[in-house]
């Protein structure tokens, strides 16, 4: 269970990194497309078409943010109930709350663009929290994994 918990926490952190990457990828594609004379407005946005490839960044961001990350955070929270480590539930809950807040702030950005800035800031908080949540768990296997290479390196050939 600890392994699952640790992996899930790291996946949340990795997902935050992916979210940041695909969004900037999409914006870069948009800027390049507009630079080439393209018009991006509500009709194009809602047409379901992909006028430039990087639109997939927005689609991935939306699917990840709405479904995938909340689902992983929820499974992490449930896993934490069975992880007999002090603070595991607390940190899973912090991650979960930050994920929920991140989604709400993101949608709020549709109305108040400044919320988008907070969305970016909260992403850093979420990344840090998720990364720490994974890192603070010492699994039964990890000491072995950490020690073995050292032993091997120290052994003269």
């Amino acid at each position: 269970m600890r392994n699952a918990y640790k992996v899930l926490a790291y996946i949340v952190a990795a997902e935050v990194a992916i979210q940041a990457m695909v969004m900037v990828w999409a914006i870069a594609g948009l800027v390049k497309w507009v630079d080439g004379g393209g018009v991006f407005d509500k009709s194009i946005m809602e047409s379901g078409a992909t006028p430039f490839t990087e639109v997939f960044g927005i689609i991935v961001h939306a699917i990840n943010g709405t479904f995938v990350v909340p689902a992983i955070a929820l499974v992490l929270l449930i896993t934490s109930f069975f992880t007999k480590v002090r603070g595991a539930i607390k940190w899973a809950a912090i991650v979960f709350v930050l994920v929920v807040a991140q989604g709400q702030i993101g949608y709020l950005g549709h109305e108040f663009p400044f919320a988008g800035a907070l969305h970016g800031l909260n992403a850093l908080a979420l990344f840090s929290a998720a990364f720490y949540t994974g890192r603070r768990i010492r699994t039964a296997a990890s000491p072995v994994v950490e020690e073995q290479p050292e032993v091997q390196a120290a052994t003269p050939v």
Binding site: V39, S43, I44, S47, A49, T50, P51
Partner: peptide, 9 residues
Amino acid sequence: LAHTYGGVR
């Protein structure tokens, strides 16, 4: 009729 086909206006 204004219509967008696959991203083409």
